[in-house]
Design a protein around this nucleic acid. Structure first.
Lengths: 211, 211
DNA sequence: GTCTATATCAAGATAGAC
DNA sequence: GTCTATCTTGATATAGAC
């Protein structure tokens, strides 16, 4: 019970830290700001996270774990066959714009906090990506295709979190369709359930063929 | 003359700032560190850039301008036809691994410095990307394809600068081939120079990348 | 244009009361 | 476990000599 309460407090403190980054940017991710956001004193905050490094580390670990759970669930929901993980990413990573934005905001705050605080803190994220790319790179699609799709999704993420390119629902749909067309042609099996999203399986132009 | 000298000094100071970020990370991008790296005093540095914001602003503007020049040149070197800008990005953005790395390092230092210092300083980068995506989104390829390719390249850039996924020459080649196959099929015109070459010896000069 | 010296301040972290 | 008060450091920026 005590443990559960403590865990809940930690979680709310991490929420506060994310909120600070999202609203004020990483330059303003200070212990004072997090404490104020959480409605606690700096001393109280430092009781749960004895240093700023530990706080950021916890932010990254939580985000990494969420990400891992998220794509594993998507994998389970996706039909078997070549490119299963890749198709799972397409259906979950580019689903609804609003959900996507929320996830983006949260993950970006952790990643950038780590980058600013101490780049080595990104490590948990590396482990998740390591597993993800292992799965995506070896699932029967033509060489490099799974990796290309994953990279494209993360490119969109980058555009969105930096505001480099306006990413709206229309753009997401355009890009998803283009990527799905590639994957579908590379792995034409099981066209019945290619994607869990109804309007995502509309492929007009025939794709290319490869070895 | 005086102006040219001043401009050269400014450029060398920006080089020093990039070097600091690359070697020590953005957390250590301080005026002291930049001054030391450039072999000048902090007072001298502040004569050229009256505040840290101005210094980072100049870093971003220089990087953005390099990027713009870079892809415009690549465009000129690329054969006419559908997807010209997209093909230009593929040939120049994913050319030689070493050149690419160098460009990555430099561009990432500017972008992340801006992110840490003051996100609004990214603006010059936005303008360049705005133009780039305008060109890539409307060149006769199937809908979303140009944007997907551009996003994939920037995804690779992200992997590389954060070390999220190991990006080596082999991976670059794999992804490039997958993307080229898409573009080639969508725009089969001018097969002579499109990049039917397995190793894409299309245009390899001045490799390098974006953002 | 470059330097040294210094003012100013904010942030991370500690100590100890409650 | 949470608080207030305080210590310490390091970073930006200014002032003014050379």
């Amino acid at each position: 019970m005590t443990r559960k309460d403590t865990s809940e407090v930690r979680d709310s403190l991490l929420d506060a830290a994310e909120a600070v980054v999202i609203r004020q940017g990483i330059a303003n991710l200070t212990l004072d700001a997090v404490a104020a956001e959480a409605g606690i004193s700096k001393g109280g905050l430092l009781h749960h996270f004895p240093s700023k490094d530990r706080l950021v580390e916890a932010m990254v670990m939580r985000t990494a774990e969420h990400l891992r759970v998220h794509y594993r669930e998507a994998y389970e929901r996706t039909s078997e066959g070549p490119g299963r993980m890749t198709r799972a990413l397409l259906s979950t990573g580019l689903a609804d714009c609003n959900c996507w934005s929320e996830q983006c905001r949260r993950s970006s705050s952790a990643v950038f906090a780590a980058l600013a605080q101490n780049p080595s803190l990104i490590e948990p994220m590396r482990e998740v990506y390591s597993e993800l790319h292992r799965r995506v790179a070896d699932e029967g699609l033509s060489t490099g295709l799974g990796e290309a799709v994953a990279a494209a999704l993360d490119g969109l993420w980058l555009y969105w979190v930096l505001g480099l390119v306006p990413v709206d629902q229309e753009m997401i749909v355009r890009v998803r369709k283009a990527l799905e067309a590639m994957v579908e042609h590379s792995a034409p099996a099981k066209p019945a359930r290619l994607s869990s999203n109804p309007n995502a399986s509309d492929v007009k132009r025939s794709g290319g063929r490869r070895s």
